[in-house]
């Protein structure tokens, strides 16, 4: 059971959150210009990292806000928590 620090509400138990999968996936501005493969990459392909992973979480049973988490998927160490729209932080792999 992870302990996540919501940027607004502080430390809360994982039960209050929903994980939204990989972060920093940007919706293409002109989808119609993409071929099937490029569009398929955006829709379906995810990194599924072993180790450092940037992901989105929403404090569903709280303030309702989405935010980003850098988590080590092996150790569950939380390396950074930052706002949606912020750049991916520089972290050692």
């Amino acid at each position: 059971m992870l302990l996540l620090s919501c940027p607004w509400c502080g430390d809360r138990s994982e039960q209050e959150f929903a994980c939204g999968g990989e972060a920093h996936i940007v919706r293409p501005l002109a989808p119609e210009d993409l071929d099937d493969r490029a569009w398929g990459d955006y829709v379906f392909m995810r990194r599924n990292e072993k180790g450092l992973h940037f992901e989105r979480w929403r404090h569903v049973h709280g303030c309702g806000r989405w935010f980003n988490v850098a988590r080590n998927t092996v150790t569950h160490e939380i390396l950074a928590i930052y706002q949606v729209g912020d750049d991916r932080p520089e972290l050692p792999e």
């Binding site: 509400c9 209050e16 049973h61 709280g62 303030c63």
Partner: peptide, 10 residues
Amino acid sequence: CARSILARCS
């Protein structure tokens, strides 16, 4: 105040 859960409800 705080939003949270009570068993399985918000």
